[in-house]
Every structure is written in C-alpha cells, then in structure tokens.
C-alpha cells in the first residue's frame, strides 16, 4: 500500500515534468516561428543607425517610415504588388472556373466515360512531361511574357479538382432531381444549387489556389521577363537576395530601378510588404485550409 502510494507520487512528478517540457518546448517553437517576422517588422520601421548599432530588437527606439517612403517613391515594389494582386485574383478566378466545371460532370456517378476521364486525370498526377517540354510549349504558343503563361499551365489542379468533386458527390442528388423536375437545366442546376451549397469547399480550394498564385516564384521567373509585368516575389528576391551580393544564377547583379543596393530597412520593408497580404487573410486561411486538408484527407 505504501509502495503504491509513493509510486503514484513519483509518477505524478514525472508527469508534471513532462507537462512542463511539452509546454515550454511548444512555446519555444512558436517563438522561433514568429521571431524572424517580428524582427523584420521592427527593422523595417527602424532607422539605419539603430539597425547598425543594436543587434536584435523587437521595438525600435525611433520609429521611421523612411523605408516605406522609399518603396513608394521607387514604384518598383508597388508595381510588383499591383501585378501580384492582379495575377492572384485573375488566376484564382480562372482556376475556379476550370476546376468546378470539370468537377461537376465527374461528380455524376452515372456519367458515361467517367472512369476513363478520371484515369486520364490520375495519369497526369503521376507522370509529367517535365520542365523543358512545358517551357517549349509556352514558347510555341507565344505566351511568354504574358500573364496567360501563369494562368493556363496550372489552370486546373487535379488534386483540388478531386477535392471539389468529392464534395459535389456528397450533395444529396434529390435536390438536383427536384430542381430538374421544376424545369432546371444542367447549367442552372450547377450555378443555382450546387455552387451555393459548396461554399466551404470552394472557399478552401480558392484559398489554396490564391496562396499559390501570390507565393508563386517559379512560373514568373521562367515565363515573365518584362519588368513591367514583374510580380512581388521576383522584386523581393532581387532586392533582398541579390542585393546581398549572392547572385544565385551567377549573373551580374542588377538592382533594377532601385539603382543602388538598398539598405537594410528597405530590404526588410519589402519583405514585410510581401508577407502582409498573407497575414491579412490568415484568419480565413487558417479556418478553410485546415478544413481543406481534412476534406482532402477523406478521399473517395
């Protein structure tokens, strides 16, 4: 009896220790995650003097908005932001058009040729022609330096399409049947009944696409060389990475319209400007992405 009791106490001390380790560990991880963001945010509002003098700080002593003024004056970053917003909105709209129109017929279990089409889609998930044939295709189609080169090659993600299709399949068919009885045709049924009922999955999937467009770097780098059409990620990379004197492709460092190597605060401000739009929609993202992952995890 006595032994048992002491065991229990020992166990609970161990338990408490584990609890502390877990709490502290996760707390540390969370801090490591956000600290770089806080640091660049603070740095972007700091004066150059303070950035040189102090090694690390979260609250600048003197608040300066010079870096942001500089960004606005040069116009390059602002143009990048504007282009990125356009690419994201337009690209996502195109994605959603292709994805939903393709998913809807496939959600009909009685559609003839359904399994054949699905197999053809799955083949593209497993095998691809690769980078070079895709590049040559875009070149042949004369899409280089147009935003179509960003919209079209990824207009439909098979994975997202399957998520949407699975959601459509779960909508009770009686609803559509009833509507059909009342004289609703296929297109009307799709627009008036199926789409409004699928808002959660449409929100998730359009966020998947939108974040992809906003963060996209590879496509713009490959296909867009016209400075007028640069998106924010390209500008950001030039300002922050190449300005560090490390040109990853070994080419001459071109600071573009900025002319001189930007100072520390400017680099940080550009990074902040590229992150902020993501953080603005983050509450929605968190809600719908998690949901999207769950929907995606339940496949049919």
């Amino acid at each position: 009896m006595k032994i048992q009791k002491s065991n229990k106490i020992k166990g609970s001390i161990g338990d408490r220790l584990i609890q502390i380790i877990i709490n502290v560990g996760l707390g540390l991880f969370a801090i490591i995650t956000v600290l770089p963001f806080l640091y660049i945010l603070a740095g972007s509002f700091a004066t150059e003097k303070e950035l040189v003098e102090r090694t690390f700080f979260i609250f600048p002593r003197v608040i300066s908005t010079n870096a942001y003024k500089y960004i606005l004056e040069t116009g390059e970053v602002f143009r990048g932001l504007k282009n990125s917003v356009y690419v994201t909105l337009m690209g996502t709209a195109i994605n959603m058009f292709f994805t939903t129109t393709f998913a809807y017929p496939l959600a009909r279990k009685d559609l003839k040729g359904r399994s054949l089409i699905m197999n053809l889609v799955i083949i593209t998930m497993v095998f691809s022609g690769g980078m070079i044939p895709s590049f040559l295709l875009i070149k042949e189609l004369n899409l280089l330096n147009t935003y179509w080169s960003l919209f079209l090659p990824g207009a439909l993600s098979a994975y997202n399409m399957i998520i949407v299709k699975n959601f459509f399949e779960a909508i009770p068919s009686e609803l559509e049947e009833a509507a059909t009885m009342d004289g609703c045709n296929t297109l009307l049924c799709f627009i008036k009944i199926v789409l409004p009922l699928s808002k959660p999955v449409l929100a998730s999937v359009s966020l998947f696409y939108a974040v992809g467009h906003w963060n996209g770097y590879f496509g713009p780098m490959m296909y867009i060389s016209d400075p007028e059409k640069e998106v924010i990620q390209i500008v950001l990379r030039r300002v922050t990475l190449l300005a560090n004197g490390v040109a990853t492709d070994g080419s001459l460092i071109d600071y573009g319209l900025l002319g001189t190597p930007p100072d520390r605060a400017v680099k940080m401000a550009v990074t902040v400007v590229a992150v902020v739009p993501i953080l603005l929609v983050y509450p929605f993202i968190q809600k719908y992405f998690t949901k999207g992952v769950m929907i995606g995890a339940v496949k049919g």
Binding site: I40, N215, R237, L241, I278
Partner: peptide
C-alpha cells in the same frame, strides 16, 4: 501554421537577413 503560407522567396529572404 503561419510559415506554411509564406513563399520560399520570403523564407530565403529571412534566411539571408
């Protein structure tokens, strides 16, 4: 969850900084 949603350009920028 936040870092998942930022681009690799930003991750690389932070790393360089």
């Amino acid at each position: 969850y936040v870092p998942h949603f930022v681009s690799y350009v930003i991750v690389a920028s932070l790393t360089y900084t």
